[in-house]
């Protein structure tokens, strides 16, 4: 059975399980999603399920987007995302709600992490920085050496250093589903999820169970 959803991160809180233990959870308002297209190896060269999420006013979409949805009598949807699956067992137009996931199941949650801007090597890669005492000045958070000397005489490509950090696709793997509320389209997973509040996330079955 295909399991995947698109949702919006609401924020973190804690809930109590049946033993009274407080669990840190992230709430996600997920679905209802519609199957908007099925990609098949014969046509597109790979197989995947395309889901749409969040109904909007038709004026919010371009003609092409509307046409893609209208061809299958689907409502105007703001977000379209693909889920790679081996054999799609859903049909175009199917509605997918949080009920595809059960409490206790493991899921992967994919989001775009918060952008941190241009950051130094200490924050970005955990460099140690320079000595803080013994007559040092302006060296506390310096990245240090970037490579060897005359040989090779250049910095290797991909060498770690300061630069733009965050705002990349991040997967939080193997999170336990703690709560499923079909009435409110709400799902709660144990632990943190990448991205800001209100950020778009994809929920999938866990790859490494």
């Amino acid at each position: 059975m295909f399991k995947g959803l698109i949702g919006k991160k609401i924020g973190m809180t804690q809930v109590f399980d049946e033993d009274g233990v407080a669990l840190p959870v992230t709430l996600i308002e997920a679905g209802p999603c519609y199957v908007t297209q099925i990609r098949r190896p014969e046509k597109e060269g790979y197989s995947a399920v395309q889901l749409g999420f969040e109904e909007v006013h038709p004026k919010r979409l371009t003609g092409g987007q509307l046409g893609h949805l209208k061809a299958n009598n689907l409502p105007p949807l703001r977000f379209l995302r693909e889920f790679r699956v081996k054999s799609p067992d859903v049909n175009i137009g199917d509605k997918i709600t949080v009920e595809v996931f059960n409490v206790g199941e493991r899921v992967d949650v994919i989001g775009i992490s918060k952008g941190k801007g241009f950051q130094g090597g200490v924050k970005r890669y955990g460099f140690g920085g320079g000595p803080k005492t013994h007559g040092q000045s302006d060296r506390w958070r310096a990245p240090g050496s970037r490579g060897s000397g005359t040989t090779p005489g250049r910095v290797y490509k991909g060498a770690r250093g300061p630069g733009h950090m965050g705002r990349v696709r991040v997967t939080a793997q193997n999170l336990k589903v703690v709560l499923v509320d079909a009435e409110r389209n709400l799902i709660a997973v144990h632990g943190a999820v990448p991205g800001p509040k209100g950020g778009l996330v994809m929920i999938k079955e866990a790859r490494k169970q």
Binding site: G11, T13, F16, V25, L27, R184, L186
Partner: peptide, 11 residues
């Protein structure tokens, strides 16, 4: 606080 966050509050 979000209304949805409040929805999961324990009694």
């Amino acid at each position: 606080m979000s209304e949805l966050l409040k929805a999961v509050e324990a009694p």
